[in-house]
């Protein structure tokens, strides 16, 4: 088999590459890091300190690479669109598997806790690890739990698409307002004082944008999950 030989070759070369990576990383861990590698991070932190955001990763994702993040969200939207198109078979044969009483009760109890955790991860994205993408996926996993446990539960298409559209439009509007006020797409036009660093309200537009990203990612992922789940129930 040609395919089998190809897979074997790729596996062995992958094994070799990962062994090389392991040796390199262990080498770096055992000896000291080269000076140039160390200085790159310091330079980034120096620029980061001008924005008053405690989490450097957030600054890179939302501020320095804000336009790329917009593109990433568009890619996710296209993926959700593709799944909706591929699975749009209109057969009404619905066979239900009733889930147990324990699962139903516990998922009702767990759903608000998971939603709360997702919103926490979104809102504190500029202070601690986490942010819009992670928080959005956590919110989507809460909806996944509810969709699996309750057969008659269904997300409303119009509400989800309203949330998604509003989030996407407000991302672009905030970017354009930055362009208007500071001559810079996604310029940080809300006052952000360096002394506020580490507070919940700090960093100007960066937490706002991360919350918007979270809403958009959450609604898109919930829609993907619901499309796959409900369509695969229909025969």
């Amino acid at each position: 088999m040609n395919l089998k030989r190809d897979v074997a070759v790729q596996t062995y070369s992958g094994l070799g590459l990962s062994a090389l990576l392991a040796i390199t990383i262990l080498n770096i861990m055992l000896h000291n890091m080269p000076q140039s590698v160390k200085r790159a991070g310091e330079k980034l932190l120096e620029i980061n300190s001008q924005d008053g955001v405690a989490n450097a990763v957030t600054t890179v994702v939302v501020y320095f690479r804000g336009f790329d993040t917009l593109g990433e969200i568009a890619v996710l939207f296209i993926a959700s669109l593709g799944i909706g198109l591929v699975l749009s078979s209109h057969s009404e044969h619905h066979h239900k598997v009733e889930s147990s009483f324990i699962l139903k009760t516990a998922s009702k109890l767990l759903f608000p806790i998971i939603i709360l955790f997702g919103i926490y991860v979104m809102v504190y994205g500029h202070l601690s690890p986490g942010g819009g993408f992670q928080g959005g996926v956590i919110v989507a996993s809460a909806f996944l739990l509810l969709l699996i446990s309750h057969q008659d539960f269904e997300l409303s298409h119009s509400v989800i698409s309203a949330f998604e559209t509003l989030a996407g439009v407000s991302y672009v509007i905030i970017g354009l307002m930055g362009l208007w006020i500071l001559d810079n797409f996604l310029g940080n036009f809300i006052p952000h004082d360096i002394s506020q660093m580490g507070m919940l309200v700090s960093g100007g537009i960066i937490p706002l944008i991360y919350i918007i990203v979270g809403i958009k990612v959450g609604s898109e992922m919930s829609m993907i999950v619901q499309n796959l789940l409900k369509r695969s129930d229909n025969e």
Binding site: V57, P129, G130, F133, Q134, V225, L228, S232
Partner: peptide, 22 residues
Amino acid sequence: PDVALTEAVIGAGISSVIFLMA
């Protein structure tokens, strides 16, 4: 930790569920 959180939620949770449903 950012990447670890993303990987934990997406890699172990959502993506495998989507694979299983597919």
